[in-house]
Design a protein around this nucleic acid. Sequence first.
DNA 1: TGGCTTTGTGCTATCGATTGCACAACAGCG
DNA 2: CGCTGTTGTGCAATCGATAGCACAAAGCCA
Lengths: 338, 338
Amino acid sequence: MDDAPLPIRATVASLARRAGVAASTVSRALRDDPRISPQVRARIATLAAEAGYTPNVLARTLVGGRSGLIGLVLGSIENPFYAELMQQTVSQAAAHGLRLLLLHAGPGPIEDATAEALLQYRVDGCLITSAGLSSRAAAICADNGVPVVMVNRVARLHGSAVSCNNLAAGEALAELLLAAGHRRPAIVSGNAGTSTSTERAEGFARRFLAAGLPAPARFEGGTGHAAGYAAGQAIAALPAPQQPDAVFGVSDILAMGAMDALREAGLRVPGDVSVVGMDGIAAGAHAPYRLTTVAQPLEAMVARGLDLLLARIGGARLPDEVVLLRGALIRRASARLP
Amino acid sequence: MDDAPLPIRATVASLARRAGVAASTVSRALRDDPRISPQVRARIATLAAEAGYTPNVLARTLVGGRSGLIGLVLGSIENPFYAELMQQTVSQAAAHGLRLLLLHAGPGPIEDATAEALLQYRVDGCLITSAGLSSRAAAICADNGVPVVMVNRVARLHGSAVSCNNLAAGEALAELLLAAGHRRPAIVSGNAGTSTSTERAEGFARRFLAAGLPAPARFEGGTGHAAGYAAGQAIAALPAPQQPDAVFGVSDILAMGAMDALREAGLRVPGDVSVVGMDGIAAGAHAPYRLTTVAQPLEAMVARGLDLLLARIGGARLPDEVVLLRGALIRRASARLP
DNA sequence: TGGCTTTGTGCTATCGATTGCACAACAGCG
DNA sequence: CGCTGTTGTGCAATCGATAGCACAAAGCCA
């Protein structure tokens, strides 16, 4: 049996021995320190390559540098938006040479032990995208000088944030529905207390009120398709005179759930009732839905989020900053359009 | 302005100073070493708590221990199955006190620089779930003695694996369709060369051949909904005599895409053509699809994957191991059933 | 009461990479 | 020819936690 030639990894020390120089020289050579002579530098580079040398980031971090790690706290991927956000984040972070420590992805608050991992692994910064109560993670970061940026969520106490202009998005959707003659709007809300849900609903409602119409009826939604479906059933069960002629699901997945329930109850969408959502997830574009929505500028959001984070990791003591990006209204067949 | 009381984190050394003992004593007290007297242990525990002490995992890892990090390589979340897999993995890993280094999530092969991060951060092990070509990551791990477990993918060269019994799943679906009288099956395949796609298609085809029927027609699929949709369009465009009466999308998302295209082309599902998939993703259960499928036992797969990984991290030199789990056939309305 | 075992702590090296400072070799200058 | 200045390297300390070994203070027995 091949008795496992225990894979001893090359270190600066082992390279130094083989090159006949000091460890510090190896370190400097590999970091392209101008003080090292070109010959030595080249020789060490060759040696490192053939030994398959990989620097130990942990040791480097220990001495005081960056870890190159970004903590990522995700919301429940019951909402596919978060999955898209994650993929975008991984890819952009990699482009900056950063890796992600994925700490939480799911419903419910983040556990204390998990949030503490942010400190234990010395993350350089933290991206929090959970719409729910992940304030614990934010608090821990704030207490320990770890920069935090919230994405798709406003910063409640501390930290910077990037999000879509939810208010404007709600207004734009309302505007569109108004122009098409809708007069009895309803809202399927997200989890209570989440900024995204509140703001979107607020913008939507405001526009109808401004038009002299009654406030939209509100239905408790939640996180995923099932919640939207339940709300849709509740709406379909209303007596005819109270039936809304437009339903706004504050996230696409809610809208899709509601749409499924409405249709199953025999209502035609958009014939009897228009449905609109917000986020711009891929599934919303598919044939059964063709959801009119406001798409969040995912790529730009992540880009700006990383910008904010990197600037603060740079050491500069910057004030908290909030970036609002405008979403793009996408008209599709789920709503009667003007 | 509050001039940032630079958050100096407590260390064993700082605690030792305050407690008037040696750093090693602090370390031992916090790790509940029986050699430390109860009084000292309690005093240090109190001190640590009020100082908000958090051990530096990097330093601990450096001295030779585990990093507590698991590398996670994900496939494209164009297929929601991977998002579900990720959430499950995060949650189960956390239960083991492990954190995930999220290295890649997307289509395309993993970059070399990214794969090397596995070594740089000294991950204890690596979970590879990408169906595509992430062999680079596997190779790097193997070369450096990092245990690897593939999930939802067979191990090509080295490493252990957990996956659903794809062959049996394909057979079960074929069986069901045969029993319901289907005689002209078609397959929408995944990316060429992926074990999951090949095996599922193989099992499916085999069963029809065994029944004395011609081999199912094959349509090039791919990763996501769009690929399935395109395949569906191709199928719908066939002259009537060649129209299949059953379509197997090797993943749910492909099947859903195909279904959307077929219906859009005027075909009734399951009236004119039955559609079945495999994976058991949440969206497949929703009203527009009600997809008959074989659900992968996600929770068990991740659990067994972590088991395999942890056993190998334990240091034991175990042979590569492959675990096959049986999926669960779920009958829904997308197919004419027996 | 002396010697021996248990208990509880401290000292110190270690992991791997980085960095300030010292220092040798050599060139240029007056 | 001696002196200062540059260039290239080595030494040693450091980051934070851990672990082997030494060692002091008790407790036990004969």
